[in-house]
Deep mutational scan, measured.
Amino acid sequence: AIERGSKVKILRKESYWYGDVGTVASIDKSGIIYPVIVRFNKVNYNGFSGSAGGLNTNNFAEHELEVV
C-alpha cells in the first residue's frame, strides 16, 4: 500500500516526472481524484515572481504510482 514516506515511481506518461521516483508527502483521504502528494528532489520548471525554484511536489492518483 502507498503511505506517507513511501518511495514511488511515477507512471503518468504526460507528467514531467514520468519514470522518476519521489517520496509520498501526504495522502488526502477526502475522496479527491488525485489524493497522493509526491515530493521530488528536483523542480519541474524555473520559478516565477521571484521564487527560487519551481514546484517539487505534485498530486497523483494511486494508480499512477508504483511503490519501489
Rank of each mutant, 00 (worst) to 15 (best):
residue 29 K to E: 11
residue 4 R to Y: 10
residue 44 N to W: 15
residue 18 Y to S: 03
residue 21 V to L: 07
residue 59 N to E: 07
residue 57 T to W: 15
residue 11 L to H: 05
residue 1 A to F: 09
residue 45 Y to D: 15
residue 66 E to D: 04
residue 7 K to E: 06
residue 58 N to D: 15
residue 48 F to H: 12
residue 30 S to W: 04
residue 23 T to P: 02
residue 44 N to R: 07
residue 66 E to A: 08
residue 12 R to P: 01
residue 29 K to T: 13
residue 14 E to F: 06
residue 11 L to M: 06
residue 14 E to K: 04
residue 52 A to Y: 09
residue 58 N to K: 06
residue 40 F to Y: 01
residue 21 V to W: 05
residue 33 I to E: 14
residue 39 R to E: 12
residue 29 K to Y: 12
residue 52 A to Q: 13
residue 10 I to E: 01
residue 27 I to C: 05
residue 17 W to A: 02
residue 22 G to P: 00
residue 29 K to H: 14
residue 59 N to S: 13
residue 60 F to G: 00
residue 26 S to H: 13
residue 57 T to L: 07
residue 56 N to F: 10
residue 31 G to H: 12
residue 16 Y to V: 08
residue 2 I to K: 00
residue 14 E to H: 06
residue 23 T to A: 03
residue 18 Y to K: 01
residue 67 V to L: 12
residue 65 L to F: 03
residue 9 K to Q: 05
residue 45 Y to P: 15
residue 46 N to Q: 13
residue 10 I to G: 01
residue 37 I to D: 02
residue 28 D to V: 07
residue 32 I to F: 07
residue 18 Y to T: 03
residue 3 E to H: 12
residue 25 A to F: 08
residue 21 V to N: 03
residue 4 R to M: 10
residue 36 V to P: 00
residue 55 L to K: 10
residue 33 I to M: 12
residue 54 G to L: 07
residue 52 A to L: 11
residue 16 Y to H: 06
residue 6 S to D: 13
residue 55 L to H: 11
residue 52 A to E: 14
residue 48 F to C: 15
residue 26 S to W: 14
residue 33 I to H: 11
residue 66 E to Y: 06
residue 60 F to S: 02
residue 49 S to M: 13
residue 17 W to H: 05
residue 30 S to V: 05
residue 44 N to G: 08
residue 9 K to W: 04
residue 32 I to K: 12
residue 26 S to P: 00
residue 39 R to C: 14
residue 8 V to N: 01
residue 46 N to D: 14
residue 9 K to R: 14
residue 60 F to Y: 06
residue 26 S to T: 07
residue 41 N to Q: 13
residue 50 G to V: 07
residue 55 L to G: 09
residue 57 T to Q: 10
residue 51 S to K: 05
residue 42 K to M: 05
residue 53 G to T: 13
residue 6 S to I: 08
residue 27 I to V: 08
residue 56 N to E: 08
residue 8 V to T: 02
residue 14 E to Q: 11
residue 51 S to G: 13
residue 63 H to C: 12
residue 16 Y to I: 08
residue 18 Y to M: 02
residue 24 V to S: 00
residue 60 F to R: 01
residue 2 I to C: 11
residue 62 E to Y: 15
residue 16 Y to L: 06
residue 60 F to T: 00
residue 34 Y to I: 03
residue 41 N to P: 09
residue 49 S to I: 12
residue 55 L to R: 08
residue 3 E to Q: 13
residue 27 I to P: 02
residue 23 T to H: 05
residue 16 Y to M: 06
residue 50 G to H: 08
residue 2 I to G: 02
residue 64 E to A: 02
residue 42 K to D: 12
residue 64 E to F: 03
residue 48 F to Y: 10
residue 1 A to M: 13
residue 5 G to K: 02
residue 15 S to Y: 04
residue 1 A to P: 13
residue 47 G to V: 06
residue 14 E to N: 10
residue 18 Y to L: 02
residue 31 G to K: 10
residue 52 A to T: 13
residue 22 G to H: 02
residue 38 V to E: 00
residue 64 E to Y: 03
residue 59 N to Q: 07
residue 41 N to S: 11
residue 46 N to S: 09
residue 63 H to V: 09
residue 24 V to H: 01
residue 12 R to H: 03
residue 16 Y to N: 05
residue 26 S to L: 08
residue 48 F to P: 15
residue 43 V to T: 11
residue 63 H to S: 11
residue 51 S to H: 10
residue 27 I to H: 03
residue 61 A to F: 06
residue 57 T to F: 13
residue 42 K to R: 09
residue 40 F to Q: 00
residue 39 R to F: 12
residue 36 V to K: 00
residue 68 V to R: 03
residue 36 V to E: 00
residue 46 N to A: 06
residue 26 S to R: 11
residue 3 E to A: 12
residue 30 S to M: 04
residue 20 D to N: 08
residue 24 V to M: 02
residue 11 L to E: 02
residue 44 N to C: 15
residue 29 K to Q: 09
residue 32 I to L: 11
residue 59 N to L: 04
residue 20 D to F: 13
residue 62 E to P: 11
residue 10 I to C: 09
residue 6 S to N: 08
residue 22 G to A: 03
residue 38 V to G: 00
residue 44 N to H: 13
residue 5 G to C: 12
residue 54 G to W: 10
residue 66 E to M: 10
residue 52 A to F: 11
residue 9 K to N: 03
residue 32 I to Q: 13
residue 42 K to C: 15
residue 35 P to Q: 11
residue 6 S to F: 14
residue 17 W to Q: 01
residue 42 K to P: 06
residue 6 S to H: 07
residue 53 G to A: 11
residue 40 F to E: 01
residue 41 N to L: 10
residue 25 A to Y: 10
residue 67 V to Q: 05
residue 57 T to G: 07
residue 67 V to D: 03
residue 19 G to P: 01
residue 30 S to R: 07
residue 35 P to M: 14
residue 11 L to R: 03
residue 39 R to W: 13
residue 37 I to A: 10
residue 21 V to E: 05
residue 18 Y to F: 11
residue 34 Y to Q: 05
residue 37 I to S: 09
residue 25 A to V: 15
residue 58 N to A: 15
residue 17 W to K: 00
residue 25 A to K: 08
residue 1 A to R: 13
residue 31 G to N: 15
residue 4 R to S: 09
residue 4 R to N: 09
residue 38 V to D: 00
residue 23 T to D: 04
residue 54 G to V: 10
residue 58 N to G: 15
residue 37 I to N: 08
residue 49 S to F: 11
residue 9 K to S: 03
residue 20 D to G: 06
residue 30 S to K: 07
residue 22 G to K: 01
residue 48 F to E: 15
residue 17 W to L: 01
residue 63 H to I: 09
residue 53 G to I: 11
residue 20 D to A: 12
residue 30 S to D: 05
residue 63 H to T: 07
residue 42 K to W: 07
residue 55 L to T: 13
residue 32 I to N: 11
residue 57 T to S: 10
residue 60 F to H: 00
residue 62 E to A: 11
residue 24 V to A: 01
residue 55 L to I: 14
residue 14 E to G: 11
residue 60 F to D: 00
residue 40 F to H: 02
residue 42 K to Y: 06
residue 44 N to F: 14
residue 22 G to F: 04
residue 30 S to Y: 07
residue 42 K to T: 11
residue 65 L to Q: 01
residue 36 V to F: 14
residue 19 G to H: 05
residue 36 V to L: 04
residue 54 G to E: 09
residue 18 Y to N: 02
residue 57 T to Y: 13
residue 24 V to R: 00
residue 36 V to M: 02
residue 18 Y to V: 03
residue 58 N to L: 07
residue 39 R to I: 14
residue 8 V to P: 02
residue 24 V to K: 00
residue 58 N to Q: 15
residue 19 G to Y: 04
residue 21 V to A: 02
residue 35 P to G: 11
residue 38 V to L: 01
residue 39 R to L: 12
residue 62 E to L: 14
residue 60 F to N: 02
residue 66 E to L: 10
residue 23 T to F: 07
residue 31 G to C: 14
residue 14 E to Y: 05
residue 27 I to Q: 01
residue 57 T to K: 07
residue 6 S to T: 13
residue 50 G to M: 07
residue 40 F to L: 03
residue 5 G to H: 04
residue 38 V to C: 03
residue 3 E to M: 14
residue 52 A to C: 15
residue 15 S to V: 03
residue 53 G to E: 14
residue 13 K to R: 08
residue 49 S to Y: 13
residue 9 K to T: 04
residue 45 Y to T: 15
residue 39 R to K: 14
residue 61 A to G: 07
residue 57 T to A: 06
residue 60 F to E: 01
residue 3 E to W: 08
residue 40 F to I: 03
residue 40 F to M: 02
residue 20 D to P: 02
residue 44 N to P: 10
residue 11 L to P: 03
residue 46 N to W: 07
residue 2 I to R: 00
residue 17 W to E: 00
residue 58 N to E: 15
residue 49 S to A: 12
residue 22 G to T: 04
residue 53 G to W: 05
residue 23 T to V: 13
residue 30 S to Q: 06
residue 7 K to C: 15
residue 4 R to L: 14
residue 42 K to S: 09
residue 29 K to R: 13
residue 59 N to T: 08
residue 9 K to E: 02
residue 35 P to V: 12
residue 5 G to Q: 02
residue 65 L to C: 03
residue 18 Y to H: 04
residue 23 T to K: 04
residue 59 N to G: 12
residue 57 T to V: 10
residue 16 Y to T: 05
residue 15 S to F: 02
residue 14 E to D: 12
residue 46 N to V: 09
